[in-house]
Design a protein around this nucleic acid. Structure first.
Length: 826
RNA sequence: GCGGGCGUGGUGGAACUGGUAGACACGCCGGCCUUAGGAGCCGGUGGGCGAAAGCCCUUGGGGGUUCGAGUCCCUCCGCCCGCACCA
């Protein structure tokens, strides 16, 4: 028999060529809009093409590909497309450094992603490939923007915005990290007053929150989104400054503490602060304070530990519940972006107000006391529940939770306030003063104002420029010929918007475009969307748990409201894969611990790399890369292929539908049973993303095949090996296609997913565990159909059980058929 | 501080609804084959006692529920992630 050697470098390109030539993974749209064979849309988050793919990409697409293959072989038509999130800062920064046009560096990177996806053998429908920087794509990004604009969901507003001094651009709240640093470059973010484009995502806060209930997403991702939306119930209460005749509403979650308010605080950014201080002795001090805090970084300001600072405004407001005059302050612990930018301060029942009152020697009035008999610590500030005291005859003695409703009701009746819900979520700031992004398709006309570019003129193409260096305005502003245009309404002179869109806009709808990627008349036809959407299984990293996933959900809801979609949620099920680390830390060039997929595949082939990355542990957890571990998987694939090749050679002609002998016995029966066990195990594990145990099950099967290779019929061995290859195909497609083809002459991806034979999952006897007082004392063979009585007898008769019972009384006998018998003795 | 997750051999991990803890793999030890092996094959491998049969211990610590707990409950310790002066 000739020596058989597993050679992935010969096997893998050979099968990749078949799949590419035959366009195996392409799937058409059903003109009827579905209704035929069941459909499945399996999608991994599209890559950001910068440099070469890294190991995280390999993991993400290995997970998605396994699911796509599994769904196909369950008989579904599977949409599994690919694209590139091609606009963005890294390409632009690269251009600033080297002068290379972002389009060129992006093209280079895309080409290397394409090459690698092919060499990894990912089953992609290449006919639907998109890239967000192509005019044929961003034309529709612009169209969506204008749809939102017409609906009032895109608007321009001057606002205190987060500005990155290094990248010279405005950032969305979500792009500023906890330390107040730019998510991309790490520079300390500043606040600037600028006119910017916003998308009205806050209109959707309630729906974005509520609809989380109905989708199959990991709990921690839902929790992160809930926290980000940050819903709080409370009341809006109006405090009036009589001297200036201005009403100041505040939001509070504790209207029950209104009678304990002893002062009033405004955020330094509050537009009225300077006006209020004007003409008072404190004017200068207020000015200085405001300037100082506005220049403070978020990092300094956000520190809750830092001592409270502030300045009196020299004015008072009236507490609407008791008419008291409360002194007004400006203090940086009050945030403009939450609530109304002003608060009523109740030092007795709020930690922060308490700290401020202590620093400024302000009165503290307790109005909630621990309920009589309660063990709560009554010391101030008391933030727990209790009963109202020293408030008002109508409310004193009430439980504070009940008092909230009563007081809000009273405020409402008096016209001094009303129940209110507040969200932490802010509107999405989408304009960027950068070059490499989708142009915002509007013009400014002196007479007509903001005028959308007519649909027929889309796309507004990104012009070529020479200088990408940021100067505080968009580099596009330098393209004067491009900026100057005519107004679509009056025909007069107009100027184009020179800001571009946040790249998260591009990626908020790409999954829709895949369904109808080559449509030149519209962003999509509703029929293919009806067929494919929503995405059945979305796969990506947790780092997108808030931004991308929230924005995409918002887009769907908004587009559904505008009549363009008939579903509310884009991703029915979400899977978040864990990171791949090396030596316990994140891979990075500076640490020199980067494992390059290209080098890996050069060495061991993509089947080994893919199967190892899924075998190393549960895919939703972080996994530490180990070359030794990978060698183990390589040995396994090698053994599988060799045994298949040898078996095929020994058997002569391949057999199309391998099956074991009709009535196997002895070792044949054992191996056939093991095979059906593996089918059952792998099928179940695939459904719950337990790829590591699925692969382990095929390893077990192969171990049995190797052990019994000379003791079973050739048909049995061929059946078991072909089944193993079939089961492993979603994880290591090339070697399995090859092994399956050697054994059967068939293409494994055209075969239905194997089904376990129920009869073969049960054996006629099993090892009955015999326990005494919960401890295993013996094991005996029991017949599968034995009655509980028989099992009890078997157990009592077991030698070591007898020794432990030792004549004592059996007070109880628990029988779990198929498993064990437990004797309780006294 | 709030919310979520986790803690199992030398290592990665398995045990899905409470029912044989440690599947599978790495590593290590021993053997076979070989001129040689960083190739391949076979066997062993949680700890302790014992010649063996077997017994005891063991899923971060402590307590509880149960015939039976890695799994459920309480409590403490440790680690990771998200949010955080959010009124």
């Amino acid at each position: 028999m000739a020596e058989q050697r597993y050679d992935p470098h010969e096997i893998e390109p050979r099968w990749q060529e078949v799949w590419a030539n035959e366009r195996t993974w392409e799937v058409g749209n059903d003109p009827e809009g579905g209704g035929g064979a069941p459909c499945s849309y399996v999608l991994e988050m599209l890559p950001y093409p910068s440099g070469e793919p890294h190991i995280g990409h390999l993991k993400c697409y290995s997970v998605g590909d396994a699911i796509a293959h599994f769904h196909r072989r369950l008989g579904r038509r599977v949409l599994h497309p690919m694209g590139y999130d091609a606009f963005g800062l890294p390409a632009e920064n690269h251009a600033i450094k080297t002068g290379e046009h972002p389009r060129d560096s992006t093209a280079t990177s895309i080409a290397s992603f394409q090459r690698q996806f092919h060499s990894w053998g990912i089953s992609i429908d290449w006919s639907r490939e998109i890239a967000t920087h192509e005019p044929s794509y961003y034309r529709w990004t612009q169209w969506i923007f204008l749809e939102l604009f017409r609906a009032g969901l895109a608007y321009r507003k001057e606002a205190a915005v987060k500005w990155c001094p290094h990248d010279q651009t405005v950032l969305a709240n979500e792009q500023v990290d906890a330390d107040g640093r730019c998510e991309r470059c790490g520079a300390l973010v500043e606040i600037r007053q600028l006119e910017q484009w916003f998308l009205r995502i806050t209109d959707y806060a309630e729906r974005l929150l509520g609809d989380l209930e109905g989708i199959d997403w990991p709990e921690h991702v839902k929790t992160m989104q809930r926290n980000w939306i940050g819903r709080s119930e409370g009341a809006e209460v109006t405090f009036r400054c009589e001297e200036l005749g201005i009403d100041y509403p505040v939001f509070t979650t504790r209207p029950d503490t209104l009678f304990g308010a002893t002062f009033f605080v405004m955020a330094p950014e509050h537009p009225d602060v300077l006006r209020l201080a004007e003409g008072t002795p404190n004017e200068m001090e207020v000015r200085q304070y405001v300037n100082r805090t506005l220049n403070e970084s978020n990092e300094e300001r956000g520190n809750a530990e830092k001592p409270k600072t502030g300045v009196p405004l020299g004015r008072t407001v009236t507490n609407p519940v008791n008419g008291e005059q409360l002194p007004m302050y400006v203090a940086d612990y009050v945030l403009m972006e939450y609530g109304t930018g002003a608060i009523m301060a109740v030092p007795a029942h709020d930690e922060r107000d308490f700290a401020f009152a202590a620093a400024f020697d302000l009165p503290v009035r307790s109005v909630i006391a621990p309920a009589p008999g309660s063990e709560a610590d009554p010391s101030l500030p008391f933030t727990g529940d209790g009963v109202l005291v020293d408030s008002h005859a109508d409310f004193d003695g009430m439980q504070n939770r009940a008092a909230i409703a009563a007081i809000v009701h009273w405020l409402d009746r008096e016209g001094k306030g009303h129940a209110s819900v507040n969200y932490r979520l802010r509107d999405w700031l989408v304009s960027r003063q950068r070059y490499w992004g989708c142009p915002i398709p509007v013009t400014y006309c002196e007479t007509c104002g903001i005028v959308p570019v007519p649909e027929a003129e889309l796309p507004v193409r990104l012009p070529d420029i020479d200088d990408y260096t940021p100067k505080g305005r968009s580099p596009l502003a330098a393209a004067e010929d491009w900026v100057r245009t005519t107004c679509a309404e009056c025909g007069g002179p107009a100027r184009r918007e020179t800001d571009t869109m946040d790249t998260f806009v591009d990626s908020s709808w790409y999954f829709l475009r895949y369904c109808d990627a080559s449509n030149h008349e519209a962003a999509w036809d509703p029929r293919p969307l009806r067929e494919w959407m929503p995405v059945d299984q979305y796969i990506g990293g947790v780092e997108h748990a808030i931004l991308h996933l929230m924005y995409a959900r918002f887009f769907c809801k908004a587009l559904a409201d505008l009549g363009h979609l008939d579903f509310q949620e884009p991703f029915s099920a979400l899977f978040t894969q864990g990171m791949v680390t090396k030596d316990g830390t994140k891979m990075s060039k500076s640490r020199g611990n980067v494992v390059s997929p290209a080098a890996l595949i050069e060495r061991v082939g993509s089947d080994t790399a893919r199967a190892y990355i899924l075998f190393v542990g549960p895919p939703d957890q972080d996994a530490d890369w180990s070359d030794e571990g990978m060698e183990g998987v390589h040995r396994f694939l090698s053994r599988l292929w060799r045994l298949a090749a040898e078996t095929a050679e020994r058997a002569g002609e391949p057999v199309p539908e391998p099956s074991a002998a009709a009535y196997p016995d002895g070792d044949d029966l054992a191996l056939v049973r093991k095979t059906h066990w593996a089918i059952e195990k792998v099928s179940g594990d695939l459904r719950r993303f337990a790829f590591n145990t699925a692969i382990a099950a095929v390893m077990e099967l192969l171990n049995d095949c190797s052990r019994l290779r000379d003791d079973v019929e050739l048909d049995t061995l061929r059946f078991s090996l072909a089944s193993g290859a079939s089961l492993l195909f979603p994880f290591a497609p090339h070697v399995c296609a090859d092994a399956y083809s050697l054994l059967t002459g068939q293409r494994v991806w055209e075969q239905p997913w194997p089904e376990a034979d129920e009869a073969m999952l049960e054996s006629d006897s099993y090892e009955l565990v015999c326990q005494v007082n919960g401890k295993v004392r013996d094991r005996v063979q029991a017949s599968a159909d034995a009655s509980s009585e028989t099992l009890g007898e078997l157990c009592r008769a077991a030698p070591n059980v007898k020794a432990h019972v030792n004549g004592r009384e059996i007070v109880k006998e628990i029988v779990v058929p198929g498993k064990l018998v437990n004797l309780v003795v006294r």
